[in-house]
Amino acid sequence: MNNPNWPIFAIFGLGVVLTLGVGFYCVMVTRNLIRALIGLEVLTKAVTLLLVLCGYVAGRMALAQTLAITLIVVEVAVMVVAVSLFLGIFRRTGSIRSTDIQNLKG
């Protein structure tokens, strides 16, 4: 705890943990497909913050920013696919609640 960056790490670290909690809770509890995607977005934000924070404390900001930018691009691609799937599901079943699409059982 002697590292001068400790207070910064502590406060932003706490923020990361809480945001991760919010995201996980949302993904686990929601029945609405779009809200599940929003939960995933919140989780991604938390991880981006964690990445930048670790880079700050380690003194590797250029690398941390590169990784964060790559992460954002990956996230966009995944979200585009997710929304495409969502639109496909909606058009075929007319519902956006996961309880109405439980065709897979066993």
């Binding site: 779009i34 995607l37 929003i38 934000k45 930048v52 920013q65 964060a68 930018i69 996230e75 966009v76």
Partner: peptide, 30 residues
Amino acid sequence: IMFRLAAPIAGVFELSVCAGLIPAIFISAI
């Protein structure tokens, strides 16, 4: 927060993509 943590370029990316592009995609889907 990213600006405060000396990550300005990543911050700009985050703003334009996650506060702009992704909400636009969601809103059009909704």
